[in-house]
Design a protein around this nucleic acid. Sequence first.
DNA 1: TTCGGATGTTAATAATATTTACATTTAATG
DNA 2: CATTAAATGTAAATATTATTAACATCCGAA
Lengths: 205, 205
Amino acid sequence: MSKARCSYHHGDLRNALIVAAAELIERDGTLDFTMAEAATRAGVSAAAPYRHFADKEELLRGVRELAILGLGHAAGETVSEHPNGSLEGILAMGHMYLDYARDKHAFFSLMWEDRGDIEERREKVAEEHGGFMVLVNMVQAYCDAHGNTQVNSLHLATQIWSMGHGIATLEANQLINLFDRSIEPEALLDQSVRTMLAGVVGAAA
Amino acid sequence: MSKARCSYHHGDLRNALIVAAAELIERDGTLDFTMAEAATRAGVSAAAPYRHFADKEELLRGVRELAILGLGHAAGETVSEHPNGSLEGILAMGHMYLDYARDKHAFFSLMWEDRGDIEERREKVAEEHGGFMVLVNMVQAYCDAHGNTQVNSLHLATQIWSMGHGIATLEANQLINLFDRSIEPEALLDQSVRTMLAGVVGAAA
DNA sequence: TTCGGATGTTAATAATATTTACATTTAATG
DNA sequence: CATTAAATGTAAATATTATTAACATCCGAA
């Protein structure tokens, strides 16, 4: 009875609802789908979701987990396509992040928004945020490759993440080139990352 | 009749509603005040706001303008407290931005969120976003002071802004130290800014 | 003075989230 | 195998808000 849809009980409604909600978010580009539509899409009545989620916020948190895992997966793909410890790998990671922010804006903001569950999230860092660890490893490998063992790679990775996050966030909201239409987000990010690595690790520029 | 409250007509309801909404956002730390409460606070009925704003979104856009002007004002204050073209001035600007993001989280996110009015915003850049221009001038002065005339200060200011924006956004959502509790946002930002300036302009570190 | 438009009011209307009361199914227990 | 409590669904309320409709008042121009 783990995959029934034949009768009264769904079998895997919680996940089905998360997927349904994600599809609606994907379709509309916003988080304001209705609970009723998500329920219908999952093949149940409007009240059924409340057996699995206290409220819409909780469902959104479920979708968020899915999105975070997806981004982590993309990070894994990206790293596997480039030489270990290479600059290009780190830059590619930035481009991937930028693409994600642009193409899946609603998921991107949902992912980082505070929804009053910080403590809960802290506990799930390891299982959810593999993506960041991928970056940390890339940075570490880069430092190693450049013979620098003094660098705190977690710290440096956080600096690079926040640079990418800032550009991605602004770009997703069409603000990065608000003052100068000629600015190219990827070029800007590449240059920022190069400068940061050159300044902290040496070489790279 | 520009400031009446005596009789039937309010006199300046549009602005009063923006202020009322801003107070509610300040009070609750969220954007989900009700139109009715904003109206009551402004001393009018629940339907009155619709004579001035098509919907809640439009009222929020009004509040956003106010917030952006406020941040611009803070930028002006900050720059006036430090030597022209100094590194400390630029760092102070970053701290101010970080403080704003933390203390006025709801306004901060409202400010940068896309609310489907990009074109409209582009037209108001000059009148609204004096704050960014303050940063551009600081960066320009910094470059001048370091005898570097090759730098595109608009470009460099955008890089610095996006770094600060990334850190501020993550910090406001309590995510910047998700992986390493020991990270201090201001220190991280200071170091990033120094590295960027040193890498692009020279000196500074 | 008088009339039209702007701005307010109160009373609907509508869309949604969420709860309630009841139904069905599952799974453990004797 | 029969029984029953817990889990999971359903349909029919409720409640909260945004928003609109229909009507009232006021201000400024002709």
